[in-house]
Write a protein that binds this DNA or RNA. Structure first.
Length: 334
DNA sequence: AACATATCCAACCGCAGGTAT
DNA sequence: TATACCTGCGGTTGGATATGT
């Protein structure tokens, strides 16, 4: 079977998105919800392929995305998860609900990899780790650590495979609790195990609401005579703060802010309780928090996500030799 | 100041898997 | 069941910006 091209190359615009295009896309998604990307360029008049629209949305415009510097905790989580999961950025991103896989991937490739390599180099010459954020309180010989890591990864793989096996579902499912179940019934995340369609609509509901609030401000300033054709949107003062890092004028409505804040509190608390440390980020709690209830894609098949605590346990549990150590106390081997 | 090099990150590409018909 | 289409994912690219010489 020959795969058709992703999109007709002729007449398809490429390269950076303009604010106007973003507005058109957000407007459309606000009305129709994400999904059915194939129809987006047709219905909006955007000269972009469906894939580009989806990517722009998921990596940049989607509500709940936090931009800017990674916190120490986030950094440690990424390193930690990368050690266990490898370059499965989508899976890793599932544990960092505010970050996109692309962001994490970029951060890893451009910064963390080098940082850890540097660390590895320096530690190999000093034999003992004691620098930076990645140190151990009780240094472990490198070989020992590698063996332990391999063992734990093997265990994780086996447990995962068992858990995903339909025959063993009842006993194993306890092991693979979906993240949502840790959050509680009032969570703003998607409900457990929806179908794909259900997931999309459920997850989107809250964000659409938020976007609508943002758009409300834009609509007020919308030039008279606008007929609802998205392509006509060329000038406005809609805030795409999220996407343009505050360089675009105007701000989210206070109405949206207030509601968003309460949601943000829920999520923060969720993560605090889930991971046992302070809120992932306190420095970046401005407008982006407005959308923090946006869902993240599920991983590990069947719409379930493995609790980070389990991953950590697999990785760290040393049969009682070593007590559970914090993320900051782990060595990573390259 | 001018140029070279490094870094960052948004966007693209192509493959794989899932879903609809 | 086979085929076509759609979506998600990970690797890579290339333009913009920062830094060094």
């Amino acid at each position: 079977m020959v795969r058709p091209p992703c999109c007709d190359k002729e007449g398809v615009k490429k390269g950076p998105w303009t604010p106007e295009e973003d507005i058109i896309l957000v407007s459309y998604i606000q009305e129709h919800g994400p999904g059915n990307w194939k129809a987006v360029p047709t219905n909006t008049g955007l000269l972009r392929c469906s894939k580009s629209c989806r990517l722009r949305w998921t990596n940049y415009l989607r509500p709940g995305i936090k931009r800017g510097n990674f916190t120490d905790q986030e950094e440690k989580m990424i390193i930690h998860l990368q050690a266990l999961l490898g370059n499965r950025w989508a899976a890793i991103a599932a544990y960092l609900p505010q970050r996109t896989d692309n962001d994490i991937k970029n951060y890893w490739n451009t910064y963390l990899k080098k940082k850890l390599k540097r660390l590895e180099t320096s530690t190999s010459s000093e034999s003992c780790l004691g620098h930076d954020n990645f140190s151990v309180s009780q240094p472990i010989a490198r070989g020992q650590w590698e063996r332990r890591l391999q063992t734990n990864i093997d265990m994780a793989k086996k447990a995962l495979s068992d858990a995903l096996s339909p025959q063993k579902s009842t006993s194993s499912n306890n092991l693979l609790l979906p993240l949502e179940s840790n959050i509680g019934s009032e969570s703003s995340f998607c409900s457990t195990k929806p179908t794909q369609t259900q997931t999309q609509s459920l997850c989107y509901a809250s964000s659409a609401d938020n976007i609508a609030r943002l758009l409300k401000g834009w609509m007020k300033n919308k030039p008279k005579g606008s007929n609802g054709n998205y392509s006509n949107v060329t000038q406005n003062s809609f805030n795409i703060d999220l996407a343009y890092g505050g360089n675009y004028e105007t701000s989210a409505s206070s109405e949206g802010m207030e509601k968003g804040s309460s949601t943000n509190v829920e999520i923060s608390e969720t993560f605090e309780s889930l991971f046992g440390y302070e809120s992932l980020d306190s420095s970046n709690s401005d407008s982006t928090n407005l959308f923090q209830d946006e869902s993240k894609p599920e991983i590990i098949g069947d719409g379930e996500i493995m609790p980070f605590s389990l991953l950590e346990k697999w990785l760290l549990d040393d049969g009682g030799i070593q007590e559970k150590v914090g993320l900051s106390e782990i060595n990573y081997v390259f």
